[in-house]
Simulated scan of single mutants.
Amino acid sequence: MSLLFNLLWIILGGFFVSLGYLMGGIALCFSIIGIPWGIQCFKLAVFSLFPFGSDTRMRDYHETNSTLNLIANIIWLVFGGIFVVFSHLFWGVVLCLSIIGIPFGIQHFKMVRLGFTPFGREIIELDAIGRTN
Rank of each mutant, 00 (worst) to 15 (best):
G13M: 07
R57L: 09
R57H: 11
F42V: 05
G25T: 11
C29A: 12
W37D: 03
I129G: 08
I99C: 02
G120F: 01
L22T: 14
W9F: 06
M58Q: 08
L28I: 00
L126R: 06
G53M: 01
H88W: 07
V93S: 13
G14V: 02
G34M: 05
T67L: 13
Y21G: 05
P103K: 09
L114I: 06
G120N: 01
F15Q: 15
V46K: 14
G101C: 05
R59W: 01
N65D: 14
L19W: 07
K110Q: 05
P36N: 10
L114Y: 01
F104M: 01
I74S: 12
E63F: 04
G120C: 07
F42K: 02
L95T: 10
S31D: 04
A128R: 10
M111Q: 14
G101K: 01
L7D: 14
I35H: 11
T56W: 04
D127Q: 04
F15Y: 15
R57C: 07
V84K: 00
G81S: 06
W76V: 03
F119M: 08
T64K: 03
L77S: 04
I75T: 10
F116R: 00
L4P: 05
G80Y: 02
I129K: 11
I35W: 02
S2C: 08
K110R: 05
V46S: 13
A27C: 13
R57I: 12
L126Q: 03
L3E: 15
R59Q: 09
N69R: 03
R57W: 13
I124P: 02
I39L: 15
I124H: 00
N133I: 08
C96D: 06
M111A: 13
L95M: 14
L4Q: 03
I106S: 08
G14Q: 13
V46D: 08
A45K: 04
C96I: 12
T117E: 04
F109L: 13
G38Y: 05
L19G: 14
L77Q: 08
G115Q: 00
N133S: 03
F79V: 15
I26S: 02
F119N: 00
I102F: 02
C41M: 10
G115V: 00
F47A: 09
D127H: 08
L22S: 12
V112R: 00
L97Q: 09
S48L: 12
I11L: 12
I32R: 04
L8K: 11
T117Y: 02
F83L: 10
W9S: 05
I26Q: 06
L44S: 05
F50K: 06
L4T: 08
L28Y: 00
T132I: 07
W9E: 12
